[in-house]
Every structure is written in C-alpha cells, then in structure tokens.
Design a protein around this nucleic acid. Structure first.
Length: 531
DNA sequence: CTGGGGATGGGGCCC
DNA sequence: CGGGCCCCATCCCCA
C-alpha cells in the first residue's frame, strides 16, 4: 500500500515537473520568438526604407543645384542628428544586440517538450518573410493543433517556427505570460518578420507584454541614406516607423488582456497595419489592408465603451501619426493608407516634402519634428491629446506669424478672417483651435464618436447624428413635389432636380448634360477618356 | 449606361 | 467655444 502510494506520488511529481518544464520552455520560446519576429519586421521596414531613399536620392540629385534646397539641407542635417541620438538611445535599451536568432522547432512536433532540442540559428541573413503566429491555448479551449500562418515567399525553412505554448495539459503555472493563463481562452499574434540585417537592434520586453522596436544601425551607416536626409527627404524615415511599431506594442498589450482573437477582422483591438508589399503581406496584417481601411478607432474602441464619445486621453488607445512607407514609393509623409478610411480621407494629406517647400519654416519648426524630438511619437500624437495640443500650440506660436505672411492665400486670408491656426499636417489655416483639431482628424484618423447601433465611428458629432438617422429611419426632409422623404437635406436637394429637370453639368466633349457632376465625370471617363 | 437614392467625409458658417 | 446645420464632393448600390 505504501509502495503504491509512493508510486502514485512519484508519478504525480514527475507529471507536474514535466508540465512545468513544458510551460517554461514554451514561454522561453515565445519570448525569443517575439523578439525575433519584431526584429525581422524591423529589418524589412528598414530595407524598404533604404530602397525608397535611394529612389528619392535620384530624384533629388536632379534638383540639387537649387541653392534654396542646399540651405535646407543644412537644417535637416540637425534633424538627422536628433534622429541618430534617438536611435542611439533606443539601441542602448535592446538586449538582443547580435544577429537575429531563431528557435528552430523540430518539424512535425506541435508542442514543445523539454526533451526536444532547441536549435538557435544565429546570423542567418537570408531574406525571408513570414508570419509568425504564436498561439496560446489552454487545455480547455484548444487542442494540440498548431495554427500556423506563413507567407508564400518563405525561403528559408530554418526560420520557420510554429510555437504553441500552453498546449493541452499544460496548466497555467510556471508562466508569467498572461496569454497562457487559464483565464485567457486564447491569444494569437501575427507578426511579420522579414529578412535580417544583423546590425539591427531591437528591444523586446515580452514579459511585460511590451514590444518596442527601433530602427537598425544600417540606416545610419548608409551614406546614401544620410545624404538623402540632408537633401530634404522626410526626416528620420526610421522614425517614421516608430508610431507603427508602437501600435504593435499596444496591440500586444491589448491582446494580452484576454480577448478572444479567433477572428481578426472583428477584433477591434488589432486593427493596425504596417505598409508592406502586397504580395508579401502577412495574413494577419493583410486583412486590414484588404479592407482598404485604416480605422485605428477600431483599435481604440476596445478601450472605451461602445457608443460613447471617447474620453480624450482615455479611450483613444492609438492616437498617433503613422506614415506610409511603401516599397517603391518615396518615403513621403503620406498617411493615406493608414489614416484614410477608404474614401478620400487622406487626399488632403500633403506630401511632407511639399510642406517643406511651401513653408521653409516648417523645416525647423515642423510639429512632426517637434513631436519626434519630444519623443511624443511613442505616446500620443492625436489632436485630442493634451501633450500634442500643447506642442501644437507651441508650434503654432512659433510659426504662425511667419507663415501667415508667407503663405498668403492658401492657408490664410487676411481679408476674410484671420486663420492663424494652421494644421500641423497640411498647414491649412483655420480661424480657431477647435476647427484645427477637428480638421486634423482627417490626418490622424481619430474618430471619437461612435454609433451605439452599429459601431461605426465618426470624426464629428454631427456626422454621427446624421448617421443615426439610418437606424432611426428619420427622414425629416420631404419633397414638396412628391411623397419622397430624405434623411439629409442634400439628398432632397438632389432629388428636387428630378422635378426641375435641372441638368447643369454639360459634357464639354459631346454636350450631353447631366444633373450631377458625378454623372458627368463618369460619363467623361467612359466616353471621352481617350480625349 | 444612366439615373436615383443612400451614406459618408470635409469645409464653412451661424447660434 | 461647442453644437449644429448647410453645402459640396465622392462613393456605392440598385433599378
């Protein structure tokens, strides 16, 4: 009897030890994997940045003889130094300072066991791009299967990893990661990782669920890149990624709070994207891109109650400026793809270079610079944010008088109304600060007003109110000529043309007249596109 | 293909 | 200063 009890006890001990060991190994692997994935992502961005900068260099060489630009180069050189200092700080924090590493899990195994060898692959610079999906599941909600997503362009199978932590039978012990606790049904991360330049450094603190990325040193060592920055390219392209990366950071944070993340599309907490080559777009990120929408208020909606006006500084989780950095496109300050919501939201977003050229003062006093220099890019940059608002006002104060005089009509019009509040993104002038803040939502994508019925979000309260007529069916605008009723005055006005027969838009090519400009435009596109 | 309606984004203005 | 409204532009869907 005693022997039997002893055996049982021994078996239980062995079982517990194995479970603990499994959990520990899984946790370690996950941590390393996070670092690795983030690192690879950074490398990709850096490479694309380099490509873009090289292209930009060619462009700029043509116009370099302009003396004005030469003067600007010197000014921008200081920005580069600031950037480099920033990077230097960031680099100092990283604890993965060598080449990228990867844990290579033995093929055919879905779970990590303590008796399995762990191969550390260091220094491989092979260009790969893949999606890492780290899936944590407890014994109740997930079987031993591994969810693995990987891009098709993968070249080096050695880098492929599919790690499942907390596999069946692993209790939520011996882990600090909340994603593997029993309280968390399931978490899934999708991180893009791309080719490695061993010089890059990143910092990862997955134990605190914080991933912070910094650009690699190869940018600094690239003479072309440096030259570009001096030549008036968007300053500190490496930093352009930072806000995006901080979105990742926050995504990780949000994903650790126990949300069920089986459907990424519906997950409001993970709507973020970094601009990638479409062909290589990782699945996890591609969804967002396929929607052609960037609504980081989806993101923020996870942190605020639905249907309410997000409290400034509370509800908005992501309130940053992101930039689009596309592979073959010059790295202009164009937040269109991220910030726009699929329509034309970003159409007014000016190329940062244009703002430089239009307003030389911006070069040194650009809010973007100021925000970076103050390291606000990593916190919050939205117009609602008090920090940025203060900063913005400072920038306004520093630039207002000069720009108001130099810009003339575009941003300001002295005769009509003083528009001394300039958009920090496009320099458009407004008469008061509130107008500017509302306007800047065009660029930031902030949509503080959410519909209680359908979760749609709007940048303006009156738009929300107008939208809610869709749900209420309210149509306060009725046609006096017929029974038709409309929810918007503009609809009624448009409708009235049916009765009046008004067709004021005539085609310049064939004379055909249309009641609406859009009809005429479509007609001209289809009929006279070759003209 | 055209027209019509709906929905949404953005600017301007008024109260 | 905030709310609200008007207006315009654009896109989408459908008949």
């Amino acid at each position: 009897m005693a022997n039997s009890n002893g055996m049982v006890f021994h078996t239980q001990i062995a079982s517990i030890m194995e479970v603990l060991a499994n959990a520990a190994v899984a946790e370690i692997c996950k941590l390393v994997d996070d670092d690795y994935a983030v690192f690879r992502l950074e490398i990709t961005q850096s490479q694309k940045e380099n490509r873009s900068l090289r292209k930009k260099l060619l462009e700029l060489k043509v116009a370099r003889e302009r003396a004005e630009r030469t003067a600007r180069e010197r000014v921008l050189a200081s920005s580069v130094k600031i950037l480099d200092r920033y990077r230097g700080m960031a680099r100092g924090e990283g604890h993965l300072t060598a080449g990228h590493r990867s844990f290579v899990k033995p093929a055919g195994h879905n779970t990590w066991r303590d008796d399995q060898p762990i191969t550390i692959d260091e220094g491989s610079g092979t260009s790969t791009q893949q999606v890492i999906v780290i899936e944590s599941a407890d014994a109740e909600t997930a079987g031993p299967g591994v969810k693995q997503e990987r891009s098709e362009g993968e070249e080096n199978p050695r880098h492929s990893r599919d790690i499942q932590t907390g596999a069946a039978g692993v209790p939520p012990v011996a882990t600090e990661d909340p994603t593997t606790t029993a309280a968390q049904p399931r978490t899934q991360r999708s991180i893009t990782e791309v080719s490695g330049t061993p010089n890059a450094v990143l910092k990862s603190e997955t134990d605190t669920k914080t991933l912070t990325l910094h650009t690699g040193s190869d940018h600094r060592s690239d003479p072309e890149t440096l030259g570009l920055r001096r030549l008036g390219c968007p300053p500190a392209p490496g930093l352009e990624y930072l806000p995006v990366f901080h979105q990742i950071q926050k995504m990780v944070n949000s994903r650790g709070d126990g949300d069920t993340l089986d459907t990424e599309v519906d997950d409001p907490s993970c709507s973020y994207t970094t601009e990638m080559d479409p062909g290589n777009m990782p699945l996890g990120l591609k969804r967002q891109t396929d929607q052609s929408k960037w609504d980081w208020n989806q993101y923020s909606s996870s942190a605020c109650s639905e249907g309410c006006l997000d409290k400034k500084g509370e509800g908005l989780v992501v309130d940053e400026v992101t930039v689009k950095v596309e592979g073959d496109v010059p790295p202009t300050w164009n937040a269109d793809s991220h910030l726009g919501d699929g329509h034309s939201q970003g159409r007014d977003f000016l190329d940062y270079r244009e703002s430089l050229e239009i307003n030389p003062n911006v070069t040194t006093h650009s809010p973007l610079h100021a925000l970076r220099d103050c390291n606000l890019v990593s916190t919050s940059m939205g117009p609602s944010d008090s920090h940025s608002r203060i900063l913005f006002n400072q920038v306004l104060n520093s630039n207002d008088s000069a720009r108001v005089q130099t810009q003339g009509g575009g941003a300001t019009s002295g005769n009509i109304k003083e528009k001394r509040f300039l958009c920090m993104f496009c320099n458009k002038g407004f008469s008061c600060l509130q107008k500017v803040e509302i306007h800047q939502r065009v660029h930031t994508g902030e949509k503080p007003f959410s519909c209680t019925q359908c979760e749609k979000r709007f940048s303006r309260q009156d738009h929300l109110k107008r939208h809610q007529r869709v749900h209420t069916g309210e149509k306060p605008f009725s046609c006096t000529q017929c029974h038709m009723r409309f929810a918007q005055a503009g609809h009624l006005k448009m409708h009235l043309k049916v009765h009046t027969g008004e067709r004021q838009f005539a085609c310049t090519h064939c004379g055909k007249r249309f009641s609406e400009r859009s009809y005429l435009r479509i007609h001209q596109q289809k009929k006279h596109s070759t003209l």
